[in-house]
C-alpha cells in the first residue's frame, strides 16, 4: 500500500463502516442480556430470541407475511408472464401503450398506491384483510415480473415455440411445455424478487390491514414501546431470512447463467 492508495483505502473503510454500523449494532444488541439495547453490552444471551419465539402476535405476523408473500408473488409472476408472452409474441394494437400501463405502477410511490387502494376499498365496503394486502402487493410486483420476463423473451424461445406449433402443439401446450421452462431463470428471479419486496413492504400493508397484519406492520407497532432487544432479535432474524433469499437467488439464477 503506497501513499496514493492510502486515502482511497481509508475512504472505503470509513464508508463501509457507516454502511455496516447500524446492522452490526442491531445484531450485537439482539444478544443483550438486560432490557435496553444500548451499551454496555452484557450478553451474549438468547433470552430475546426466546421472547421473540414466544410472542404469538409476532409469530402470527410472520406466518401472515409468508402467506401473503408466496400467494401474491405467484399471482404476480403468472399474470406478468402471460402478459409478457402476449405482448412479445403477438402484434397487438397499442402495444406500447399497454406496456406503459403495465409498468406504470413502478413510477408511483407505494404510499400513493396504498392510499388509492384504501380509499377504493373503503368506498366499496371491502373489509381490510390479508387479501387486500395481497392485492396491493400484486399491484407493485406485477410490473416488475412483467418487465423481467418481457426482457428475457428472445428469438431463441420463439424458434422453439414455432417448432412445437409445427409439430401440432396447441397454444397452451406451447406456453406450459416450451416457453415457461425456457424462461425458468427469469420466472424464478421474478418470483423471489417479488417475495423479497412483499416480505419487506410496510406502507401498503399498514394502510389496508386491520386485525391480521404482516411482519413489518407488527414490528412497527413494537417500535412504539421504544428501544427493546426483542425488536433487535426479530430485526436480525428478518435480516438473515432476506439474506438467505438473496443467496438462493444468486446461486440458482446468476451462477446458472454464468455456467
Amino acid at each position: 500500500m503506497n501513499i496514493r492508495t492510502l486515502p482511497a483505502a481509508l475512504y472505503v473503510l470509513l464508508l463501509y463502516g457507516f454502511i455496516f454500523l447500524p446492522v452490526l449494532v442491531l445484531v450485537l444488541f439482539s444478544f443483550q442480556e438486560s432490557r435496553l439495547p444500548v451499551p454496555p453490552f452484557d450478553g451474549p444471551s438468547l433470552a430475546w430470541y426466546r421472547a421473540m419465539l414466544a410472542d404469538d402476535r409476532l409469530m402470527d405476523a410472520l406466518v401472515n407475511s409468508v402467506l401473503v408473500g408466496v400467494v401474491s408473488s405467484l399471482v404476480a409472476v403468472t399474470l406478468g408472464f402471460l402478459a409478457a408472452y402476449a405482448l412479445a409474441r403477438h402484434r397487438l394494437p397499442l402495444a406500447g401503450l399497454l406496456r406503459g400501463l403495465l409498468t406504470a405502477p413502478l413510477t408511483i410511490s407505494y404510499l400513493i398506491i396504498g392510499m388509492g387502494l384504501l380509499i377504493t376499498f373503503n368506498s366499496l365496503g371491502v373489509p381490510k384483510s390479508l387479501w387486500t394486502i395481497g392485492i396491493g402487493h400484486v399491484v407493485i410486483n406485477l410490473p416488475l415480473c412483467f418487465a423481467i420476463v418481457y426482457s428475457q423473451m428472445g428469438a431463441q424461445q420463439a424458434h422453439a415455440e414455432r417448432a412445437a406449433r409445427d409439430l401440432g402443439a396447441r397454444e397452451w401446450q406451447v406456453i406450459v411445455l416450451i416457453t415457461a421452462p425456457m424462461l425458468w431463470p427469469a420466472l424464478f428471479a421474478s418470483f423471489f424478487l417479488s417475495l423479497t419486496f412483499s416480505w419487506d413492504e410496510f406502507i401498503i400493508a399498514f394502510l389496508v390491514s386491520r386485525f391480521d397484519v404482516t411482519l413489518p406492520v407488527e414490528i412497527w407497532s413494537m417500535l412504539r414501546s421504544g428501544l427493546n432487544p426483542k425488536t433487535n432479535a426479530i430485526g436480525s432474524f428478518v435480516f438473515v431470512i432476506s439474506f438467505l433469499f438473496v443467496l438462493l437467488l444468486d446461486l440458482v439464477v446468476l451462477r446458472k447463467r454464468a455456467a
Binding site: A86, L87, H90, L92, M115, S123
Partner: peptide
C-alpha cells in the same frame, strides 16, 4: 396469426384488468 389475436388478448387480460382495477381506478377515485 389472426385467430391467435383473441388468444393474445385473453392472455393479456388478467394483468391488464388487475392494473386497471387496483391501480388506475384507485388513482382516479383518489
Amino acid at each position: 396469426m389472426m385467430a391467435n389475436r383473441h388468444l393474445a388478448w385473453g392472455l393479456l387480460l388478467p394483468a391488464l384488468l388487475w392494473t386497471l382495477a387496483f391501480f388506475a381506478a384507485p388513482l382516479v377515485i383518489m
